[in-house]
Amino acid sequence: MLTLLRTLAKAITGKVDALEFALGIFFGVLLGLLPVGEVDPGTGLLGLNTLWLAVLFVFLVLKASIPMAVLTAALVKLLAILFLDAAAFHFGQAALPDGLAVSLAGAVPGLQLHTFWGFGTAVLGLLLAVAFFVAVYPLMKKRLPLWRERFGKTRLAKALGNFFVFKLIGRLIG
């Protein structure tokens, strides 16, 4: 919760821009929904889903908000356990064509896209991530300057900014 508050505070006080914020959500959705481990035994990288590792790498390379991504991933993982995994699996069962699956299994088996769950989470995750990004980015871009202006003048912002935990995190994050 503190992370969320800190991120929000940073976003509002100008230390995180709208794109960084939206990208954090985008990658958080993907990382939270994609299975971490391999779904088809023996096809992953050291037992891990190569697609998840690839997304993690891209996420670390791009300038995306790490706290926002972690928070979003945790939230999406919770939803996945509740119903999104089942939905993705059934979507994969219904939507994955045999020919494509065989091609993917032969060319890039590590990505797990030839499995029902791997394919379903990848497609569903991408759709959700894009949807969230499209929804959040314009909103944040439009509203953020106004919120910054209003929020920066409030006592809460000053309090948050002066709270030693946030100061410490602020130094660490830079």
Binding site: A88, D98, V102, H114, T115, W117
Partner: peptide, 26 residues
């Protein structure tokens, strides 16, 4: 049984039969 082990480790295992057949053939 590798299939049984996968079922225990993976929450939503499964792939098309065509993939399984192609993997067996390979």
């Amino acid at each position: 049984d590798p299939e049984e082990a996968v079922r225990e480790r993976v929450r939503w295992p499964g792939k098309p039969d065509a993939v399984a057949a192609a993997q067996r053939e390979a």
